[in-house]
Amino acid sequence: MTPLVEARGIGKYFGPVVALKDISLRVLPGEVHCLLGDNGAGKSTLIKIFSGVFPPDEGELLVEGEPVRFQSPKQAMDRGIATVYQDLAMIPLISIVRNFFLGREPTVGWGPWKRFDLRTAEAIARRALSEIGIEVRDVHQAVGTLSGGERQSVAIARAVHFGAKVLILDEPTSALGVKEAAVVLRYIVEAKKRGVGVVFITHNVHHAWAVGDVFTLLNRGRSMGTFRREETTREAVLQMMAGGEELASLEVELAEIARTKGGEA
C-alpha cells in the first residue's frame, strides 16, 4: 500500500540547533500513527513540516508516493493533509458554523452578489457533526461555549468533512479531562475507520495505546525507532515514552539523593 505521507531522511536546523535529523516515517490509510517523545524531541517540528508551515532542510516529503515541497499550510491542506492544533483548533468568539467553514465558505450568487451560503453551511455542519456522533445544541452558538473536548471534536469533524486523507493531531487530549479525552479518542477511531491516516501526538501512554497502530519515538530530534502494535507491549511503549534508560538512571540518582539527605538528617 502506498503511504499517504512519507518522510525520507528528513532534517531540519534552526541556526546551530539540530531540530530533526534523519527522520523516516510512513503513514498508511486507516492507521493511527502515534508520535511519542518528550518536550523538545522534535514532534512539533516534524508535524509542521508535514502540514506545510516550513519545508525540511534535508530529505524528502512524499504525498501518496509523489515528492512534494509545501510553501504554505494551504498547499498541504489542498493535498489532504489537515492539522488540528491543540490551541489553534477553533476561534472561541465566533459561531460553530462560521468556524467550521472558515477559509472554505460555500457561496451562492454571482459577482458582487456572491455571498456566504449560511443556510447550506448550517445544514452541512449539522450533518457532518452528527455523522461523526457529535451532539450540537445550536451551530450558531459561539465555539467558546463548547468544552475543550467538544472543540477538538468539531475540529476533527471539520477536517474529516473537508476530505482530509491525513489527520495530524497535536496533543488533542493533553488539556482534557478523562471523559473529554475519551470523546476525542472515539473520533480518532471514527476517522480511522473511514480510511483516514492519523498522526497522533500525545504524552499519555493510555491514550496512545488505546488507539495506536504504530508508535514512533523521537528523542532530541532523532528517531528511536518505529514499532507496530503487535511487535510491542504497552509497558515497552511506556518505557519508550518515559525515556527508558534515562528514567532508570534518574531513579538511581534520586535514590542516591534520598540516601544522602537521609544521612544528613
Partner: peptide, 28 residues
C-alpha cells in the same frame, strides 16, 4: 454589514480578528 455577515470575506474578518494564527492555519 452585508460584507461582514453575508460574505466569505466577512467570515475572514471575524477569523482574522478572533485568532489570526488559527485563521491563517485554515487558509484565510
Amino acid at each position: 454589514s452585508f460584507v461582514l455577515l453575508k460574505t466569505p470575506f466577512g467570515n475572514w474578518i471575524f477569523g482574522a480578528g478572533g485568532d489570526p494564527r488559527a485563521a491563517h492555519a485554515v487558509g484565510v
